[in-house]
Simulated assay, not measured.
Amino acid sequence: MDVSQRLSFFAALFRVDENPTVGMWMLYLTIAALSILVYKLGFAQKLPLLKSIIIYAFLLLGSTVLTFLAIFLPITEGLVVAALILIIYKLRLRQHKKAEANVK
């Protein structure tokens, strides 16, 4: 059985099967960055500094677990889709608020 055929898109893109050390770090950084982006776009609130540090520490810790799952499962792809949906939502919300402010 060829493992390279079962890899997810990003795991294959980062060549986790050929160069596992660099590939896993690239996959981890991608997942961590996308997780932080999705958190900021969809869930972040104004918090004190210490609470924000704790939340980002847990995000990075969770990204470690997600990295191992993302080798064969589409975790990173799901985060990309979630980020795109939230970006579109934020843009539409901003346009709606701007249009509403112009009407008043």
Rank of each mutant, 00 (worst) to 15 (best):
F58E: 05
A11Y: 01
D2F: 11
Y89I: 09
Q5C: 08
R15Y: 07
D17W: 11
T64R: 10
F72A: 08
K51T: 13
L27C: 05
L59E: 00
I88C: 13
G42F: 00
T21D: 13
M1H: 11
A82E: 03
L69N: 09
T64L: 15
H96S: 14
L84Y: 10
L60G: 05
V80E: 03
F14I: 02
L49Y: 12
K51W: 12
L29D: 08
L13V: 12
A83D: 01
M26D: 12
S4D: 10
N19S: 15
M26K: 15
V80F: 04
F72W: 13
L66N: 02
K51D: 13
K40F: 09
V16W: 03
F58R: 05
A12E: 11
K40S: 13
G62C: 04
D17Q: 15
R92P: 02
F10S: 04
M24A: 08
D2G: 07
P74A: 03
I85S: 09
V16C: 07
L79W: 00
P48Q: 12
W25K: 14
M26G: 05
K97R: 13
M26N: 14
S52I: 07
L59S: 00
H96F: 13
I55L: 06
I85M: 09
L93T: 09
K51E: 15
N102E: 14
G62S: 04
K97C: 07
I54T: 08
K46P: 05
D2T: 08
V65L: 13
F68E: 06
D17S: 15
S4N: 11
M26R: 15
I55V: 12
Q45T: 15
Q45S: 15
Y56M: 05
Q45V: 14
L84P: 05
A57E: 01
L34K: 04
